[in-house]
């Protein structure tokens, strides 16, 4: 397996690019790349040439997260001011504006069926679930306070939720927090299940394997990528190699590889059968905040694509094979 650079767009945004996701193909258009930046805009790009399709404005403060509905028609973007804007991808019409004060908004993910939008709630130590038909808050998954008072450990008392991930069957939701713990929820029953231990620094990104609903990959500021059995509460493997924070992780549609982006400016490709880094792309000149594999489907059956975005204002597109 390997990555081959296809195209890079320098100055794709006027400032650091912080978020990236693919908007799945619809009947009348191929998949699009969606990016969000500190320059307060959200932009849509046509692959493979990375032609700018549209620039959405309206956010204040930097855009920290973007998410796309599995059907490809809707997308959500959120900024540091904690507003979530849900919009129609093709018309840019605002569908809804969400906020749940005092909860902040960090990472967002639609569930695999597209019925729920999960939003990492930062300091509220919870994940907010929004119904995608009514755009009403349907549930708040709160991380329970750890048992036993730990007054000395100040950071331990609050779980600042940064990231969320859905299991492929949509039954489980995992969220990562500043202190490195990962919490797993049973979504249908809206119940906290357990913590996954192992990281002691912020987990900014995590993703479930597309085939195995038990396997969860997590990226942490401690520079390591962990592979958990999310049901069995067990750490299955550790992959190290980045020399700084691992900011983002995504798993390939075939489930054979993961890609990670790091503060060390590199994008790495990891072979899961070897559990080792097989390739390092160092075309970015600053921290890589997002990596995203293009979901399968759509009219063009070309090979896999991986996109990465960075503080260096650029977007890069790679061929994955």
């Amino acid at each position: 397996m390997k990555l081959g650079g296809i195209k890079s767009v320098e100055n794709a945004h006027d400032d650091s690019v912080w978020a990236v996701t693919w908007v799945p193909a619809t009947a009348n258009r191929p998949p699009l790349l969606l990016t969000g930046s500190l320059d307060e805009t959200v932009r849509l790009w046509r692959s493979d040439d990375l032609l700018l399709d549209r620039t959405n404005t309206g956010h204040c403060l930097g855009v920290a997260s973007v998410a796309a509905h599995p059907l490809g028609s809707l997308a959500a973007s959120s900024s540091l001011d904690s507003f979530v804007r849900v919009f129609d991808v093709d018309s840019n019409a605002t569908v809804a504006t969400l906020e749940a004060p005092p909860s902040e908004v960090w990472q967002m993910r639609f569930d695999p069926k597209g019925a729920i939008l999960a939003v990492a709630g930062g300091g509220s130590a919870s994940v907010k679930l929004w119904d995608t038909s009514t755009w009403e808050l349907v549930a708040t998954l709160s991380i329970p306070r750890p048992e036993g008072p730990k007054p000395t450990d100040k950071s331990g008392s609050k779980k600042f939720v940064l990231s969320v991930a859905w299991s492929p069957d949509g039954k489980r939701l995992a969220c990562g927090s500043m202190d490195g713990t990962i919490s797993v929820f049973d979504v249908p029953r809206a119940k906290f299940l357990h913590h996954l231990e192992g990281h002691f620094m912020a987990v900014r990104s995590l993703v479930y394997s597309p085939y195995d609903p038990r396997v969860l990959f997590t990226a942490s500021d401690d520079g390591n990528i962990h592979m958990y059995d999310a049901e069995g509460k067990a750490l299955v493997g550790t992959m190290s190699g980045h020399s700084s924070w691992v900011l983002c992780v995504d798993v390939s549609p075939d489930g054979a590889a993961i890609a990670t982006g790091s503060s060390d400016r590199s994008v790495r490709l990891w072979d899961l059968s070897m559990r080792a880094s097989v390739q390092t792309m160092s075309n970015h000149t600053d921290q890589v905040w997002g990596v995203a594999f293009r979901p399968p489907g759509g009219s063009d059956a070309r090979g896999g694509r991986l996109a990465s975005v960075s503080d260096d204002k650029s977007i890069s597109l790679y061929d994955y094979s």
């Binding site: 400032d15 650091s16 912080w18 920290a64 960090w106």
Partner: peptide, 15 residues
């Protein structure tokens, strides 16, 4: 302001 926003992005829990 931009610098502070970056800092917030890096350390979200630092109010």
């Amino acid at each position: 302001i931009k610098t502070l926003l970056r800092a917030i992005h890096l350390a979200p829990s630092n109010y």
